[in-house]
Design a protein around this nucleic acid. Structure first.
Lengths: 359, 359
DNA sequence: CTGAAAGCGCTTACAG
DNA sequence: CTGAAAGCGCTTACAG
C-alpha cells in the first residue's frame, strides 16, 4: 500500500504544541516577530527549524489575502532574450521572498488573440498573485482597463505601452539606435541602412525611429529593409539585396539576423568590415560565434528582469502600506499622508560592444 | 483615494445567490458536474460565465489539498535547451489544466550546494504543488530520500539519475553518441575524436561513453578532449590542439562549442568538411548560423517537456484515484485493484540533421 | 439531485 | 506580550 512512508507535513499546531504556546504566537513569530518577546521568539524559531516547519501557502494566502507570489506572463521562453529576463526576475524574487507563477502567453498564435489574452489576464489576476510582471513586445489597450480595474500591481517589463500610468521597466531602444547611427555617421559613413522585421514589433519600430531621426538630422537618406526573422527565409532576401548593392553600414535589429546578413555578405565576397560594417542588437552568444565577430548594442536583459522585480516588490509593499493606512481609522482625515516616492518608469542602460564587424 | 475603481472579485456565494442555489451546488458544478442535474448545471455555468467568476485558488487548494499547480525546478533558463523544455511543459500544462510554479535552482553556485538544494526541495514540496518536474544534468542521491518521502509525484526531466524508482523522461544520449560514431566509422573514418567539457556533466559523460563503445567495437582508439564550455576560453584550447593535428571527425557535445571549433579550424585553413568533419549535439540556431552549417544530433527538448508534463499529470491523477480507492472502505479487502499501467520511464527519440560540416 | 455544516491551516483584531 | 475565536473561500461527506 502506497503512502506508508509518506510523512504528512507539520502544521502550525505542531509547532505551537512543541513550544508550549498558542498557534497565534507562532503565527506572529512568522509574520510580526517584533510583537513577540525575544525569549519566546527564539524558542519558537528554534523549534520551527527543528521540525522543518513550512507554513501551508494556501492557508496563508487565504487568511491574509497575500500570496507572496508574483505572476510572470511571457511569450515563448525560447524567444530571444526572454529567458535571460526571467533569470533576472527569479534571482530577485528569491532575494525578496517571492514565489513565481509562470504563464506562457500564447495568444498571438490564437484565432482570436484579443479574447484569448483577455481571458489570460483574468486567469492571471484571479490566480491570487500579489503582483504581475508582463513581458511582451507591446501591450494593447484592450488589456489596460483590465489591469487598472484589478487589485494588483503590474509592471510592464521591456514592453512598449503608451499608457503612462502603468509602471514599466525598459531599455530606450530608440535612443540606442539614434546614438549608434549618429556614431557611425560621425565616423564618416553616409550610406547606412537599417534591417528590421516584416512582422511589426513595437520594439523594432523604436529602433527604426531612432535610426531615422539620426539620419534626418545629418541630412542623410534613410533606407529601411524589412525581412523575415527566420534564418532560412531572410538569407534569400539578403542575397537578393546584396548581390546588387550594399551600404557602408547595416544596423540590424536582432543579432541572429545580423549574423545571417554577415554570412550572406561573405558568400558574395563583400569584405567585412572594410566594405560593409554590420551592427546587431542584443549581444547574445551568436555575436561571439560569428566570423567576423559582431559589434552589438548590448541590451542588459538580466538587469531588466532584476529592476522590474524590484520595482514590483516595492509597489506591492507600497500598496499594502496604503491599505493599512486607510484601514487604520485612528488618524485624522487631514493628516498628511507620506508621499509615494516610487519612480514607476525606469530605464536600464545599454552599452556598445565593439567587435570585428565594424572598423 | 486608491482602490475606488478596484472591483473585488466574485465569490462562490455570489454565483450561488444569482443562481438561487447553495454554494455546494456551485462547487459541484465546478468539480463534479456529473453529479448535478443538467438544467441546474447549465444555468449555473451560464451565470459563472456572466459574472466572470474564477474560484479562489488558495481556498480551493486549502479545502481540497489539491492545487492544480505543478512546480518546475530548473537551473538557469538561459542554459541552452532549458527554455525550450519549459515551453513544452507550459503548453502541455495549459492543455491539461495545470498552473506552473517556477523555481530556479541556483544551488550549484552556492557555498554549500547540498544544503541549499535540500532546502530548495523542502520549499518546493511544502509550497503545496501536486507534482514536480525537476530539470538538471543529474540528481544526487542526497535528494532522492526527500523525494520519496514526500507526498508528491516527481518526474525527472532530461536528468540523469541512477534510482530506478523515480519516474523520468529523457533522451538516450549514450545511444545517440554511439550511433553517430558508428555511422561515421562505417563511412570510412578512423580518426574520430570527441570533445566534451572540463566540468563534469552527467549528460556529457553519457555521450562520451556511447562514443567510446562504438570506437572500441570497431577496434579504434578513442580520444576524449575536455575543454571549457565558454567560447572565449575554448578557442585557445582548440587552437593549441588543431595547430598540430586534427581528426577526420570531431563530435562535440554542444553545438555552440562545435561552432567555435569550426571557427578555429577555418582560421587554421583546415578545410571543412574535406579535411575535418564536425558534428554537434542539440541543434540550436547556432548550427544554422555557422559557416559551414553544422551537422547535429537534434535533441527534441520541446517534446521532452511535453512528454514529461503529460507523464506527471498522469501520475498525479493516478495518485488521486489510488487515494480515493483506499479512502473508500466499501470495497472488500481482497478485491482486485486495477493495475497501474503507467510506464514511468520514457525516452524521446532524437534525429540527425545533416548539414555542410559533414560530407 | 441538493443543502446545511464541518473543516482545510492559517492570520489577525480583540480582550486580557 | 499572549491566547481564544472568528473568518478567509472553498470542498465534501452526510442527511434528506
Amino acid at each position: 500500500m502506497k503512502g506508508d512512508k509518506r510523512s504528512s507535513p507539520n502544521k502550525i499546531y505542531d509547532v505551537a504544541g512543541a513550544a508550549g504556546v498558542s498557534l497565534a504566537t507562532v503565527s506572529r513569530v512568522l509574520n510580526h516577530p517584533e510583537k513577540v518577546k525575544p525569549a519566546t521568539r527564539e524558542k519558537i524559531e528554534r523549534i520551527i527549524k527543528e521540525l522543518g516547519y513550512k507554513p501551508n501557502l494556501n492557508a496563508k494566502g487565504l487568511a491574509s489575502s497575500k500570496s507572496t507570489t508574483v505572476a510572470i506572463v511571457v511569450p515563448e521562453l525560447t524567444r530571444s532574450s526572454i529567458a535571460g529576463m526571467v533569470d533576472g526576475i527569479a534571482a530577485t524574487a528569491i532575494r525578496r521572498g517571492y514565489l513565481i507563477r509562470l504563464f506562457v502567453n500564447n495568444s498571438s498564435n490564437s484565432d482570436n488573440p484579443v479574447a484569448e489574452e483577455q481571458e489570460l489576464w483574468r486567469t492571471v489576476i484571479s490566480s491570487g498573485v500579489d503582483g504581475i510582471l508582463y513581458i511582451n513586445d507591446e501591450i494593447a489597450s484592450e488589456y489596460i482597463d483590465i489591469i487598472k480595474s484589478a487589485n494588483v500591481s503590474v509592471v510592464l517589463t521591456n514592453t512598449v505601452c503608451t499608457d503612462y500610468e502603468i509602471p514599466s521597466v525598459a531599455i530606450d531602444y530608440k535612443k540606442a539606435a539614434y546614438e549608434i547611427t549618429k556614431e557611425m555617421i560621425e565616423r564618416g559613413n553616409k550610406k547606412i541602412w537599417i534591417i528590421s522585421t516584416i512582422k511589426k514589433y513595437a520594439v523594432n519600430d523604436l529602433k527604426v525611429e531612432g535610426y531615422e531621426d539620426a539620419m534626418r538630422e545629418a541630412g542623410l537618406e534613410s533606407r529601411v529593409i524589412n525581412v523575415s526573422g527566420k534564418t532560412y527565409l531572410n538569407e534569400t532576401s539578403y542575397y537578393e539585396i546584396l548581390k546588387n548593392d550594399h551600404p557602408d553600414v547595416a544596423i540590424v535589429v536582432r543579432d541572429s539576423m545580423a549574423v545571417s546578413f554577415i554570412n550572406v555578405a561573405r558568400q558574395l565576397k563583400i569584405s567585412i568590415p572594410d566594405e560593409l560594417q554590420v551592427i546587431g542588437f542584443q549581444n547574445t552568444k551568436y555575436a561571439e560565434l560569428s566570423r567576423p565577430t559582431l559589434t552589438c548594442i548590448n541590451t542588459p536583459i538580466y538587469e531588466i528582469g532584476e529592476v522590474a522585480m524590484d520595482l514590483l516588490t516595492d509597489l506591492v509593499h507600497e500598496a499594502e502600506l496604503e491599505e493599512d493606512y486607510y484601514n487604520d481609522l485612528t488618524h485624522t482625515l487631514n493628516e498628511e499622508r507620506e508621499e509615494n516616492n516610487i519612480e514607476i518608469h525606469k530605464n536600464v542602460d545599454y552599452s556598445i560592444v565593439w567587435r570585428q564587424s565594424t572598423k
